[in-house]
Nucleic acid binder design. Sequence first.
DNA 1: AATGAATGAGAATTCATTCAT
DNA 2: TATGAATGAATTCTCATTCAT
Lengths: 197, 197, 197, 197
Amino acid sequence: MARNVIKDQQQRELRRNQILSAAASVFTVRGVAVAKISDIATEAGLSYGHVYNFFESKEKILLALVQSSQERYTELLLEARGGSGTSLDKLRWLIEQYLQKGRTSTHFWVVLQAQATEVLNPEEKAEINQKAQANRDLLADIIRDGQAEGTIVEGDAVELATLLLSLFQSTSIWGYRGFGEPSGHAVDIMLRLVVKK
Amino acid sequence: MARNVIKDQQQRELRRNQILSAAASVFTVRGVAVAKISDIATEAGLSYGHVYNFFESKEKILLALVQSSQERYTELLLEARGGSGTSLDKLRWLIEQYLQKGRTSTHFWVVLQAQATEVLNPEEKAEINQKAQANRDLLADIIRDGQAEGTIVEGDAVELATLLLSLFQSTSIWGYRGFGEPSGHAVDIMLRLVVKK
Amino acid sequence: MARNVIKDQQQRELRRNQILSAAASVFTVRGVAVAKISDIATEAGLSYGHVYNFFESKEKILLALVQSSQERYTELLLEARGGSGTSLDKLRWLIEQYLQKGRTSTHFWVVLQAQATEVLNPEEKAEINQKAQANRDLLADIIRDGQAEGTIVEGDAVELATLLLSLFQSTSIWGYRGFGEPSGHAVDIMLRLVVKK
Amino acid sequence: MARNVIKDQQQRELRRNQILSAAASVFTVRGVAVAKISDIATEAGLSYGHVYNFFESKEKILLALVQSSQERYTELLLEARGGSGTSLDKLRWLIEQYLQKGRTSTHFWVVLQAQATEVLNPEEKAEINQKAQANRDLLADIIRDGQAEGTIVEGDAVELATLLLSLFQSTSIWGYRGFGEPSGHAVDIMLRLVVKK
DNA sequence: AATGAATGAGAATTCATTCAT
DNA sequence: TATGAATGAATTCTCATTCAT
């Protein structure tokens, strides 16, 4: 007979998320360009053919993944900016959240591959870079606030933001480079970059 | 006759370097896993079949490239360590050299792909990671000297070194991420990470 | 109850015809081998899964379609043969009916694909060819009658029939070949093939 | 050492023709949409991968084949038009050549599939149809000459041409339809279509 | 040394068909 | 009856690698 449309919808949503989260894992561990659709399907626990009922290509999966990751990062930034305490407190909170695995389940590492590699076409890359710049600008806002309140050192807020994000993002991939994991002090050290002595 | 042997040897060396340098460029721009042997051959100005007279596979090219890049970085570190001035001066010089394009012609970005991706086999990756750690330790040495001479902040020298290198290495790929290029002040800001107030 | 059974039967018949008629359209426009089951289902206004409640495969749809088309053509031939007037009149009527879209809604073009392509298996193709020959023979009968009555030229009736049907059938696909549609005179011209001067 | 460029060129040409001629055969026997690249490669006696060094897809092979077939048909038409004798003689010669297998090795049947099916994209189909119309117009020229010289019946030369070509082209595929082969008289019968009584 | 023709393993993708609901 | 999620066989296509010249 007729199907349960609501349930179908939920099931679809569930499957889509399964695929994205499997892709996040596979892309992270194996590398985006090396990952096979069948790896993702296996990781997600469904057949490779079914993946194509949700995404028309590996490229589109990557795109969806990166965009969702960037959106979650935007939310984190907005939450940080809107939080209480000094700008330094906000930055500390932000970095701690960022480094804490799971909070941003898709990794900087995957976004980086999408940005710096020819896996995506130029238009898609441009879109991602634009969003990355927008996020950087949000970070610069927090820094500008800190400069106003006197907790953060003077200087070009955008450059300070770019340096700070480069630092904590690259710290998040120490594991893949054989550098172990950062200690509890690491965030304090990072903040020296911007803190006013 | 003897002369021809020598000439041949030089010619061979020249070709090999052509290929490595073409590979560096192609790997950087297109991404290691996406790059084709024929791209490299074209960039190097020779036929793709000829590449195999120098390297037995794409993988071996990457390996040779990364190793040579790491060696050049080692030399840079040794040169910095052996230089005159305070440890801070040495670090500043090192970072400036590093960021100056051409000095480290093969990029951090390629090494990162080799480290974090499954393009190479585990043994090869382990070897690269080991060398990366050794280089990090050289940087930690400089930092330790600085702590002894009082110009550098206290703390785990290895972690400080890892943070500092994360920062300047990731700064070197701003271009690929749409972040523009760092200003002349950037190095000073980076050094705040380790400088003693 | 009894009424429901009858109604169900009618409903089933209706659905089946919907599918066949959708298939005719899709096969004609897109080509038999390229057409997808889902195209047919969409055109018929039902779900692709439901198609399998009526036909066990795409092949069977094609077979049913071609057979029904051949049967309708047989009926047309019988009707023509049984009509009044000279054999020439009958031929003219036949061709006019044939060319008049809708009368033979499934097209010669689809039958031709079924005959000349490996979409169907050899047994099925043989069956279709046999029926096509039987129809040709019906046409030859009319021609033979015309020869007896003196309105049609002498000669091998089967060959004359084959030439004549080749002509009007291929005329029916001018549209797909960019040749426009035949004028009102076309039938008279075609009949020159067999008319006795 | 260096290769023999001339020989390479010849070899390439040879291979290309091997592929086209294999494709003609496979497309004709199996049907265009059903034919696999690997069928063509096997028929041509080389590996499927190598086919892609000559044609980027099955579609492009079909296109090349059809175009070459149309060109050969054009040549035939020009040769016929330029020949001696009445227009009727020219038409007879043309049809005889056409029906004689090997003269037009790629078959009308393949061209028809290319024209009437969605194997090619609309632009490619349009191009083919245009060429088909141009060829039809050449045939119409011959007919017009015949009308001027009084050997061919009055009437729209283009429609007469379209009817005549429909007839002899469709006759060329009797074999696939189980209709046997036309007799030696067939051409005379066909010509009745246009001959002035 | 140098070239590029030739091969085929492997990955992406399509779509007929099955089946739970 | 009716739907569309799910599967995987079959095919296309790419590209590293080999090898004759």
